[in-house]
């Protein structure tokens, strides 16, 4: 099938089998290998990208279904010499060991901070109608879709907390 995929602000014409996942389209057809294939079943989060500004598992998405959507990958956040605040914070706080899950962690964290800033509750939020606290318990719950087999979780939490203001999460909003 002929499709057009918009990734990191650039439009790409692709000729792909309908079975191609968004993850495989990014990695194998567009050479954007930052997004990683871990479990390929939506359990590990290594493939996390943004579609229209929201985090999703790109392994559980068909590329053909995302024609017209704006896809952002880790390559769209920053690059060596010009890291995004979250990328720099992961380096500063040892938010990884082997690094395989890191692009997914960072993409997930960026979107998670936005969800937080929009006042979205989580499973550990006490009062559903109040702005959630930016606590470690909240960060852990909201990041539970990203596994790190090196168990760099303490560094990941520190990096997220540290980068939050620079990622634009200055305050949270209560529900109406």
């Amino acid at each position: 099938m002929q499709i057009t995929l918009s990734v990191n602000g650039e439009s790409h014409a692709l000729d792909i089998d309908p079975r191609t996942t968004l993850l495989d389209a990014l990695r194998d057809h567009l050479d954007l290998t930052g997004s990683k294939k871990g479990c390929d079943h939506g359990q590990c989060g290594a493939c996390t990208v943004h579609v229209n500004g929201r985090r999703i598992n790109s392994c559980l998405a068909l590329a053909v279904m995302h024609e017209g959507d704006e896809v952002t990958t880790i390559e769209g956040l920053g690059e060596p010499g010009n890291l995004s605040p979250l990328q720099a914070a992961f380096v500063r706080h040892d938010g990884f060991q082997c690094g395989y899950c890191t692009p997914g962690q960072i993409m997930s964290a960026k979107s998670m901070l936005e969800e937080f800033g929009n006042g979205w509750p989580s499973n550990v939020t006490d009062d559903l109608t109040a702005a959630p606290d930016f606590s470690d318990a909240e960060i852990k719950e909201r990041m539970s879709g990203n596994l790190c087999r090196c168990s760099a979780y303490p560094g990941i939490c520190r990096a997220i907390r540290d980068a939050a203001p620079d990622e634009g999460m200055h305050k949270t909003e209560a529900a109406e």
Partner: peptide, 27 residues
């Protein structure tokens, strides 16, 4: 996250938030 669901149907908000992960709930 819908304000009306959070306010009037919290059992539904809570049930949804107890399921899956942030990435999966977005899809």
């Amino acid at each position: 996250a819908h304000p009306l669901i959070r306010k009037r149907y919290p059992v539904l908000s809570r049930a949804l938030l107890a399921g899956a992960s942030g990435q999966l709930r977005n899809k």
